[in-house]
Amino acid sequence: MIDAARFKPKTVYVTYIAATPEAVFDALTQPDFTRQYFGGLAVEVERRTGGAFRLLAPDGSVHVSGTVVEWSPPRRFACTWTMASMPQYELPDCLVTYDIAPAGGCVRLTTTEAHQWDIPDAILSGGRAGWPAILSSLKSVLETGKPLAVKLEQPAEMLAALQALRR
């Protein structure tokens, strides 16, 4: 059992999407969707609380692994993230929560990245740059069927801060 209260929200991104809550939930949890908007990553998730969660790169390598903390379709999907692609930094897991709420003729999707340690802003810059690109593209996929061309790259300040952690 994972104690979600240990994690403090550090980055929150809200977007409104012209789609049903079910369609947004599917877009977050099905690999055919995530490949289109999540930097080519395919989600692989056991559809139950406590199940395994992974984001796989196109070459099959594990980019992120974790555990489903809450599986409540179509309202909430939360999982821990272990940055499997960067084991050398030994970063503590973070918690990513998607909240889906009906909001009139559309839905409000709130994405929250929460951390259990005093993480420097420089390391948070990765998510702060990435989430708007990923979630803008998710919205376009659901509303137009077409993802955006977005560039997902790790900010230089994040890489420098990660290097500093190892010293």
Binding site: Y16, A18, A103, G104, G105, C106, R108, S136, K139, S140, E143, T144
Partner: peptide, 14 residues
């Protein structure tokens, strides 16, 4: 964003 991509703005409770 919806308006520019689809021609229609959103109807939201906000």
């Amino acid at each position: 964003k919806s308006f520019l991509e689809t021609g229609r703005g959103l109807e939201s409770s906000w």
